[in-house]
Every structure is written in structure tokens, then in C-alpha cells.
């Protein structure tokens, strides 16, 4: 398991597409801080949260889907033929990648925000904020990776995560009759944002508390990961 995890992390580090998708949120978050003057940290982090969700979903789906695009899955399974171990190592590597990228993005936003406005108010408990940010980044990357492994097709995986993150929330917001269903979607300014910010974003009108929002995102990730692992273990490579 340790060797498989090391190999997965090495593969992600050597993939330019994955690293770009993981680093771009920090860069965009920094740019947003420079143009969007906010007095509260969570105000600055609202944009960062959306960018981080997208970046991690894309990084994860590229990491998972490109295994099949380039047939490197053959080497993965030759080196780690126990497929449960191989799939788990991938998911753990994605969790670590996502948490790392979230930490970087949060640090960039917070540090630059403090430079731009030394009176920047940290309006949620720091521990909750950091834990929420790391969990949000980690689960988003794992969600994306699971989509890539489940679909086994890079364009389809990236397209699917974009639809889940961008299109579905809009559809549900337009369809007001669905009421609170929208709060249980994984992305948009809802569960992911509530988890990442340590509080429900006012703009989305979500009523879910942070922990519940985290559980929603965790449940979605677990469902997709189960589908991915089942497909990996039960079907031919």
C-alpha cells in the first residue's frame, strides 16, 4: 500500500495537467484578493472556494481518466495487482493532493488578504476554517478521481465533474419548486462551500450547518468512490 501510494503521488506530481489544475486555484485566489477588497476572510474565500472546487474536481478527474486515456492503468495493475489496494491508493493520493492544494490556496488567500488589508477580520473559528478547507479540497479531488476511474474516459470524466459542479446547481436554482433538494447537491455554492467556509454562504441561502454540509459532500464522494472501486475490481482493465 505504501509503495502504491508513493507511486500515485509521484505520478500526480509528474503530470502537468494535474499539477496545473491543483495550483491554478491558489493563483486565481491570489488575483481575486488583489481586486476584491473584503473586510472578512470568508468574504475573500467565497470565490476561492468555487475555484478550488473546480480545480480539484478537474485535477482528480484528469488523474483518474488519463490512466485509461494513456493505458497507464496496465502498469498500475501490473505493479499493484490487488485492485482494491490500487484503487484505495489512488483515492488516498487524491485526498492528499486535494488537502495540499487547499492548504496552499487558503494560505495564499489569507496571507495576501492580510497584506492588502491588515485589518482583515477572521470571522469563523480558525480550526473549523482550516479543517473545512482541507476536507473540501481533499473530498473534491477524490470525487473527481473517482469519476475518472468510474467512467474510464478522460473527456467524459472532466465533462461530468463540470456538469455536477456548474450546471446542476443552476438547474436546481432555476427550478425553485424542488425546494431544499438543492442543498444536498455536492457543488455549487452549497455543501462544498458551507464546508469550506466553516459557515453557510449567505449568497446561496443554504441552511445546512457546516458538519452536515461536510457529510453531504462525504456521502457523494463515498458513492462515486464505491462505484469506481467496484468497477476497478470487478471488470477487466
Amino acid at each position: 500500500m505504501t509503495n502504491a501510494l508513493k507511486a500515485e503521488l509521484r505520478s500526480m506530481r509528474h503530470s502537468r495537467a494535474v499539477m496545473l489544475a491543483a495550483l491554478i486555484p491558489a493563483v486565481i485566489a491570489a488575483l481575486v484578493v488583489l481586486v476584491d477588497h473584503q473586510t472578512k476572510l470568508t468574504g475573500l474565500l467565497q470565490a476561492e472556494t468555487v475555484v478550488l472546487s473546480l480545480g480539484m474536481l478537474i485535477a482528480g478527474s484528469v488523474a483518474g481518466g488519463s490512466e485509461y486515456q494513456h493505458r497507464t492503468i496496465e502498469w498500475t495493475l501490473l505493479g499493484t495487482p490487488r485492485r482494491g489496494t490500487a484503487g484505495t491508493a489512488k483515492l488516498v493520493a487524491a485526498l492528499l493532493l486535494g488537502a495540499g492544494a487547499a492548504a496552499l490556496t487558503l494560505a495564499a488567500t489569507w496571507a495576501l488578504g492580510t497584506v492588502v488589508d491588515p485589518g482583515l477580520h477572521v470571522d469563523v473559528p480558525v480550526a473549523t476554517l482550516i479543517a473545512g478547507q482541507l476536507a473540501h479540497g481533499a473530498l473534491s479531488a477524490a470525487f473527481g478521481l473517482a469519476c475518472g476511474l468510474a467512467l474510464r474516459n478522460l473527456p467524459a470524466a472532466v465533462g461530468t465533474v463540470l456538469v455536477i459542479a456548474l450546471v446542476l446547481p443552476i438547474v436546481f436554482q432555476v427550478k425553485q419548486s424542488l425546494g431544499r433538494v438543492i442543498e444536498f447537491l455536492p457543488y455549487g455554492e452549497l455543501s462544498a462551500a458551507a464546508l469550506a467556509l466553516g459557515s453557510s454562504p449567505a449568497s446561496a441561502g443554504s441552511q445546512l450547518p457546516t458538519l452536515a454540509a461536510g457529510m453531504v459532500l462525504l456521502a457523494w464522494t463515498a458513492i462515486i468512490a464505491t462505484i469506481a472501486l467496484t468497477r476497478l475490481t470487478r471488470t477487466d482493465a
Binding site: 505520478s11 509528474h14 503530470s15 502537468r16 488519463s66 494513456h70 493505458r71 497507464t72 502498469w75 501490473l78
Partner: peptide, 13 residues
């Protein structure tokens, strides 16, 4: 040791 598919390498690595 298996050598099954010469295309099974990431092209940018």
C-alpha cells in the same frame, strides 16, 4: 515481467 503494450506510457513523461 510483462511487456504488453508499448503505447502504455504517458507521452509527456
Amino acid at each position: 515481467g510483462f511487456g504488453l503494450n508499448a503505447e502504455a506510457f504517458h507521452p509527456s513523461i
